[in-house]
Amino acid sequence: MLAYIVRRCLYAVPILIGVNLITFALFFVVNTPEDMARMQLGAKRVTPDAIEKWKAERGYDRPLLWNGARAGAARLTDTIFFEKSVRLFAFDFGNADDGRSIGHEIRTRMWPSLALAIPSFLVGLAVYVSCALVLAFFRATYLDFWGVVLCVAMMSVSALFYIIGGQFLVSKLWGLVPISGYQPGPDAVKFLVLPVLIALVAGFGAEVRLFRTFFLEEMGKDYVRTARAKGLAETAVLFGHVLKNGAIPILTGVVAAIPKLFLGSLVAESFFGIPGLGSYTIDAIQAQDFAVVRSMVFLGSVLTILGYLLADLSYTLVDPRVRFE
């Protein structure tokens, strides 16, 4: 297994370089270093001299990818791409274009993101799996039929509608929780109740329907029939056999999603005023802050690779037939 992990980590290096190169290219197709300087310096009374100074201070006064004025390896290394990318691989994110430490921001903001993402993830998983099992149990009954109808209806509605509707009903009309905001510590509970509830509702339709399909597929297999033929109770069949085997495809998505919980939710964090990494990324895109965009994309890539690695490793735990050879 160790050799497998090492091999996967080595595979990750070219992937990360590629992602970094694509991010770099996409960003600088739309923006130039001069645009970035103007965005930071404001629109009024900005002189060309001030722009040049800003670029020089932050290392944006070099060529993007190839420095023809230099010799040897410096042609590649004395460029914006190299200078800005190489430190990422040591997880040294440097400073944002407004001069603030990105590492500090990530360390500060990941906690609110996790405070929202972990309960949403865990409660959601428990509720979705339970409901999917119930629907599978009552397959081909009115409960299953109307359950699926409800799922389809719920997955057809935009998450934004749930957010706005939830804020209107639960906070404004009923006055049960704050409409937005965040405080660390135990006070966070009252701010997280509504976004967690909405995350749960927004994901309900799609997830329950998907999980139900996995469980139904398992329930039609021979080993389930055998279990029933042995006289096992339906709960024992469901939880002892169907859930275990149906969990394998679920695990693929779930485990891969765990590391990405750090990255937060772009929309929910903005609407609920939660100062997490999702809103940090959105802010950076709006402010054309390449340093932050690049760091967050890099972090996202690393976490995605890590997530898939964990998912692959978790197969060995739930399915003894899988071996890393």
Binding site: G175, V177, P178, Q183, K190, V193
Partner: peptide, 20 residues
């Protein structure tokens, strides 16, 4: 649990008060 969580969080009179 919901009511308890709200009370523990120190909501006081107005449950939707966003301030301490």
């Amino acid at each position: 649990s919901f009511v308890a969580a709200a009370l523990v969080a120190g909501c006081g009179a107005e449950w939707n008060d966003p301030y301490p």
